[in-house]
């Protein structure tokens, strides 16, 4: 549905996007993850025909974003970082206007607007002037705007920014429910969002794609070594020293929660794939301490993200 091939974009001499390529299949939700200023928005703007690429091509639904931009525009719904709202308009009038410029047939327009209002839960504010709405509602109206013409492709730039936790869950559910009929690209720097909503993730940093896979695979691949959380009722320094001296242990990181005095919490990382739990337990018992907890700690997507974007590492295939 979406093909991005070697897209590069300069702003003057600054390179914002560097040779980015990826594909999105029909009905898929793709998470576009990266720190601020990584080139997420620029890539999305190229896809939405807002900005031309300096090099490379992108196709949406088989149409080139540069040569057949009008065809592409008919098929995309776009929610930019700041929802493009006319503050002085009423919600319904605004959506009606968007439906007009998105070429919704006059006879279907009212239905299209009603549906967009319904899907985004904004029916109750349809007669309010947009500037009097809360940030959460503005964001939803922005989403309604992207949906109103029922586009094949939805491009959402940080759709949950500024919403309260309940609204965030609702919007995520909404986005998930849209997959299948719509192909969705969603950018964010909030990691749980990606693992919750997206089937595939593209991680981008400094304008380059550094990883591309499903959230699960990414975490699996990167957490090469085993890591455990150990809670023991002994002074931290002693435990730390003891554990560090054990064979097969690579790293011991103290991780006490603030205010936790009686117990010591430590993160222990083994070398390679070797099982270190028996060694750990044995050593703790031998020292006469009590073991309160021993749990495996998978590397979270957060760690993967930091791992990929803060260090010079081999890109993950």
């Amino acid at each position: 549905m979406i093909e991005v091939q070697n897209v590069t974009r300069y702003f003057g001499r600054v390179m914002a996007v560097n040779d980015v390529s990826f594909e999105v299949a029909k009905g898929e939700i793709l998470g576009f993850l990266g720190p601020n200023a990584a080139g997420k928005t620029t890539t999305m703007r190229v896809l939405t025909t807002y900005l031309p690429a300096t090099k490379g091509t992108a196709k949406v639904a088989g149409f080139d974003v540069h040569d057949q931009s009008m065809e592409v525009r008919k098929r995309i719904g776009y929610l930019p970082e700041n929802p493009p709202l006319y503050q002085e308009m009423r919600v319904r009038d605004y959506l009606d206007f968007v439906a007009k410029i998105k070429q919704v047939e006059p006879k279907n327009r009212k239905k299209a607007v009603d549906e967009a209002l319904g899907k985004t839960g904004t029916t109750n504010v349809d007669n309010r002037v947009i500037k009097t709405l809360s940030k959460g509602y503005k964001q939803r109206v922005g989403l309604a705007q992207a949906l109103v013409h029922n586009p094949d492709v939805l491009i959402l730039d940080e759709p949950t920014v500024g919403l309260d936790p309940k609204q965030i869950i609702e919007v995520r559910e909404l986005i998930k429910s849209l997959a299948g009929d719509h192909t969705i690209i969603l950018s964010t720097h909030i990691l749980p969002e990606v693992s919750m909503t997206c089937e595939r993730v593209v991680i981008i940093d400094k304008g380059k794609v550094v990883a591309e896979d499903s959230p699960d695979n990414l975490t699996k691949k990167l957490s090469g070594s085993m890591r455990f959380k150990v809670v023991v009722d002994a002074p931290r320094d002693q435990v730390e020293e003891k554990l560090r001296s054990l064979p097969g242990i690579k790293k011991v990181i103290p991780a006490n929660a603030p205010g936790e005095k009686k117990l010591s919490t430590l993160l222990v990382e083994g070398q390679g794939k070797e099982e270190i739990r028996p060694v750990l337990v044995k050593s703790i018992i031998e020292n006469g301490w009590n073991l309160y907890e021993l749990t495996p700690e998978g590397m979270s997507l957060e760690d993967v993200f930091l791992h990929l974007t803060t260090k010079e590492e081999e890109p993950v295939q």
């Binding site: 939405t48 807002y50 525009r73 008919k74 995309i76 776009y78 930019p80 700041n82 410029i101 998105k102």
Partner: peptide, 14 residues
């Protein structure tokens, strides 16, 4: 300023 230009320029209007 408000970013609505992005709506206009990504809609099928010339």
């Amino acid at each position: 300023k408000t970013g609505t230009i992005e709506l206009l320029m990504t809609s099928p209007i010339t």
